[in-house]
């Protein structure tokens, strides 16, 4: 497979990048590590006129301490940096364990946090070569008008298949977005639109510049479980992230449960915090939350493994992660 012909722009400031995006509209595609976008370009899933390589923008790199004790992760922070960061390991372990499951070490050397949060949604009928898709007349998401996963439907079910987003959701993370009108900050939960075709709340002329982790979720015990067939080089077929804060007497003070790869967005399980806060551990309570998790997940046949099994694993992972986080206490 080959790359579609395009110009490559290499802005070195955010302003320059925003201008390039604004000038080229839908003809521009941002490229960071390229581990998602380059394979997709070769499959001709999009054919931009301009590739905007944001890697030269130095200010998008690295992990720094921001106002009010929050931690700022630049959009270009690589997954390898996240996995190896002693600061993150100590304060936000759920992010580190989720990032460590992404692809393999070489992809993590290239892949960035910004790219991971803006990943294209995935589907067995979409992530195929042009030749393969052409035989079918395309699909709803690309070049066609039929969804092969839910024929008759007008909604695209391509699955959100990133691992770091669910972890960040359980840490109340915010994304910082920069565009022609300046910077804005958004709770990560509002960044995802749960639509396979229009996955994120990002304008054509905007880019993700940072991710903020608030001080109040630092030190929360967290666990991420991922369903995959191969232990490396495999996108999630289902994933559950959990963070808990449990006081000395064993009462839950804060709780978040988020799921991934079973909807077109990573989603918080709303009931988790409502039902768990103020409660002591009981198997029955944890079961009830795990059940709410599978009601939140709506997997379809967009990936390997059946929807039934993926739902089942969401329940099992949620129960197991809550149990582990509760019993091992709060760090």
């Amino acid at each position: 497979m080959t790359m579609p012909a395009s110009r490559v722009a290499r802005p070195s400031t955010i302003e320059e990048a925003v201008r390039l995006l604004a000038d080229n509209g839908p003809e521009a595609v941002i490229i960071a590590g390229g581990t998602d976008v380059v394979p997709n370009l070769q499959m001709k899933l999009f054919a931009p006129r301009v590739l905007v390589d944001i890697k030269p923008i130095r200010v998008l790199q690295g992990i720094t301490i921001a106002a009010a004790g929050a931690l700022r992760l630049g959009a270009l922070t690589t997954l390898t940096e996240i996995v190896g960061s002693p600061l993150l390991q100590a304060s936000y372990p759920v992010l580190v364990s989720a990032a460590a499951t992404i692809a393999g070490p070489l992809q993590r050397n290239m892949g960035t946090l910004g790219g991971n949060l803006c990943l294209e949604t995935r589907c067995l009928w979409y992530n195929q070569s042009h030749f393969w898709r052409k035989a079918l007349g395309g699909c709803l998401k690309k070049d066609g008008d039929v969804c092969h996963v839910a024929p008759g439907g007008k909604r695209c079910w391509a699955a959100w298949s990133g691992d770091s987003a669910p972890a960040l959701l359980t840490l109340d993370a915010e994304v910082e977005i920069t565009g022609p009108r300046g910077r804005r900050r958004l709770p990560l939960a509002q960044f995802y639109l749960n639509d396979g075709m229009n996955r994120i709340a990002l304008g054509r002329d905007e880019l993700v510049t940072s991710v903020y982790l608030p001080a109040r979720t630092a030190g929360r015990r967290g666990i991420y479980h991922k369903l995959r067939i191969r232990d490396s080089i495999d996108y999630p077929l289902a994933g559950v992230a959990v963070t808990l804060e449990v006081d000395r007497s064993g009462v839950c003070r804060e709780a978040r449960v988020a799921i991934t790869a079973v909807n077109p967005a990573p989603l918080l399980v709303k009931e988790a915090s409502e039902w768990l806060v103020g409660q002591r551990y009981s198997a029955e309570l944890v079961d009830r939350v795990a059940h709410a998790a599978i009601r939140t997940g709506k997997p379809l046949t967009t990936s390997a493994s059946t929807p039934v099994y993926r739902r089942e694993m969401v329940r099992l992972f949620a129960r197991r992660a809550l149990e582990e986080a509760w019993k091992n206490g709060n760090a």
Partner: peptide, 27 residues
Amino acid sequence: CDDSSCGCCAVLVDGVPMLSCVAIASC
């Protein structure tokens, strides 16, 4: 491979192992 999943194309870029099949040379 066609989707950057096999590692056959690995090279060192400034000492870090990376996949040359997802690296656009001019970047």
